[in-house]
């Protein structure tokens, strides 16, 4: 295993990088103008957080790679994001359900990171918490509004939940990297965040008149990099294209 702190920072930065990219795919084609603006806000926050996390990862690694180098010049197996965030946008409902599930985990994880023994991490977390609090408010409202909207919107949101729920579990898995972070007081054990997440989920799904899938099966392999979905490679072909095609250029 490479330096666990580097791995850990890549996990945080790749989550925001990949999700920020996905959300930015909505640019100009959202259901209403206000959503175009709101989605761009979320994507912008996530890209900004990526710059901080991957910037710090590069510093920790100490091999001269900056955030852009990490974002644009690694291949699929080096990405450490959870599988949830690389899932395709689908319809607006699927996008917002993915956002809600991620935001719920993200906010509680960031709040815990605010008391990290690593000051730089605590500072990035503190800045991010402000942004992600707003993301969660919005995604929660949208999931409730569409779940408890028309019959069609309800059915689409239920489908989105059924489609994405198998990717929730991975966010709460703990492995050697997490154990190393817990040992150094850098980050919480993700498993400890699950009960609060479940309680919040139950409450929101109740208001949204949606039903949590009975099966708690969880796909995994994203945050370890062992096995991403096929979707990530396609995203990278777009995201990294210019950097790869013109490696000697600066932009």
């Amino acid at each position: 295993m490479s330096d666990p702190l580097f791995e850990f920072l890549c996990r945080l930065g790749d989550n925001t990088l990949v999700l920020g990219h996905r959300v930015s795919e909505w640019c100009g084609v959202a259901p209403v103008l206000e959503e175009d603006i709101a989605l761009a806000n979320v994507a912008l926050d996530l890209i900004g957080q990526t710059q901080l996390w991957l910037g710090l990862a590069g510093e920790v690694e100490g091999q001269g790679r900056d955030a852009d180098r990490l974002a644009f010049h690694r291949d699929v197996w080096d990405f450490r994001n959870v599988l949830l965030v690389e899932q395709p946008n689908g319809d607006f409902g699927q996008t917002m359900m993915r956002q809600f599930l991620f935001d719920s985990w993200h906010l509680s994880y960031l709040k815990a990171l605010m008391s990290s023994s690593n000051e730089q991490i605590a500072a990035i977390a503190e800045k991010s918490v402000k942004e992600v609090t707003y993301h969660l408010e919005r995604s929660t409202d949208t999931v409730i509004g569409l779940g408890d909207g028309t019959e069609e919107s309800h059915d689409r949101m239920q489908k989105a939940l059924d489609r994405l729920y198998p990717y929730v579990g991975e966010m709460f898995l703990s492995d050697d990297v997490d154990a190393a972070m817990v040992a150094q007081g850098i980050a919480p054990d993700p498993t400890t965040l699950r009960p609060a997440f479940d309680a919040h989920l139950a409450q929101v799904l109740g208001e949204a008149t949606l039903t949590k899938p009975a099966d708690d099966f969880a796909h995994k392999g994203g945050k370890t990099g062992a096995r991403h979905s096929e979707h990530l490679g396609h995203m990278l072909t777009q995201m990294q294209w210019l950097q790869r095609a013109y490696p000697d250029a600066t932009w």
Binding site: G28, D36, A40, A249
Partner: peptide
């Protein structure tokens, strides 16, 4: 006008360029 520039957001060559372009297109929506 969001569309021709939105066309390059997912291919922007650096994180900073991506953020600037996205913010610009967001301004246009505004």
């Amino acid at each position: 006008g969001q569309l021709p520039e939105g066309n390059w957001i997912t291919r922007a060559p650096t994180l900073e360029r991506k953020a600037i372009l996205l913010a610009k297109v967001q301004d246009e929506a505004g």
